[in-house]
């Protein structure tokens, strides 16, 4: 291969600023001496100049720019993300304890009629289990599911990586998510599995509905409403502007196993005071 052939193979790399030191010097020296290669170089440079000047035409629309700026505003974003994340972490921390307590007390009479959100959550759970309500997105990633809800619901859903970050054995897995109708608006539906049993989490804005009915139990500054609906255990509560409903048919034994797992972790101090007496 002649030197011209070598140099012409390098011309693109040179124009892309991918050559360093001696390689650059070699190309530049050759171009200064070889008219033929200099002509090829000139054509290639002209072509790339045309492409590079002509291609960049897009400017983000003002509406998009405003939305992103709002999203990046530090004080509001940090505080809100923290609040929602904290609520979600609390949900995961409390899940085994609360469901265990619901199971223990599942045969006791209700203290009041189940609220509309709890009924909707139970119905949604049953429809999903029957295969009548397929997931719109399937993922085991909390981030992917949280992102999927962006611009689909008028509140922020941010599921935590609690299990991954705690390093303990996985007690549950995420399956995916979908939108469900509630009071002429969308609520967020997230499907989990715990020991091959389905768990549903439904989230909506607290301005849309407040949890009511059932047995009321206060724990750690939150008020939980427990209901037994069609054999399901439904827990609803409100926190930081969102209303949650957690639905499962988990058996008592499974929940006790979960508590054992949690008792062996750093969460023990948090969970201990919440155990049913």
């Amino acid at each position: 291969m002649s030197q011209c052939d070598d140099i012409r193979e390098w011309l693109t790399l040179y124009l892309d600023d991918e050559l360093r030191g001696d390689e650059r010097v070699t190309v530049e020296s050759h171009l200064a001496e070889c008219e033929s290669c200099a002509a090829v170089f000139s054509r290639e440079r002209s072509f790339l100049k045309t492409v590079r000047e002509g291609g960049k035409l897009y400017v983000a629309p003002p509406e998009l720019r405003a939305k992103v700026q709002q999203m990046l505003r530090p004080s509001r974003r940090s505080r809100f993300s923290w609040m929602v994340a904290a609520a979600a972490v609390l949900l995961v921390l409390l899940l085994p304890v609360i469901v265990w307590r619901v199971v223990k007390q599942g045969n006791q009479p209700e203290k009041g009629p189940a609220g509309s959100f709890a009924l909707m959550a139970a119905e949604t759970h049953l429809r999903h289990v029957r295969g009548q309500l397929p997931l719109e997105m399937e993922s085991m990633s909390p981030q992917d599911i949280s992102s999927w809800f962006v611009n689909k619901v008028n509140f922020s859903v941010k599921l935590p990586n609690y299990q991954e970050s705690s390093g303990q054995e996985k007690l549950y897995v995420l399956e995916g998510a979908r939108l469900v109708n509630f009071q002429n608006d969308y609520a967020a539906y997230v499907a989990y599995q715990m020991k091959e049993r389905p768990i549903s989490l439904v989230i909506t804005s607290a301005s849309a509905v407040e949890p009511t009915g059932g047995e009321v139990i206060a724990a750690r500054g939150l008020v939980f409403h427990y209901n037994a609906i069609d054999g399901l255990k439904v827990l609803t509560w409100k926190d930081r502007g969102l209303t949650y409903a957690l639905v499962s048919d988990l058996e008592e034994r499974g929940q006790q196993s979960c508590i054992v797992c949690h008792e062996g972790t750093k969460d023990r101090d948090f969970i201990e005071p919440l155990k049913p007496h």
Partner: peptide, 14 residues
Amino acid sequence: ADDLVQETYVRATG
């Protein structure tokens, strides 16, 4: 594209 840009920033900030 509009949605994708927003999702990118959501993921980035989180």
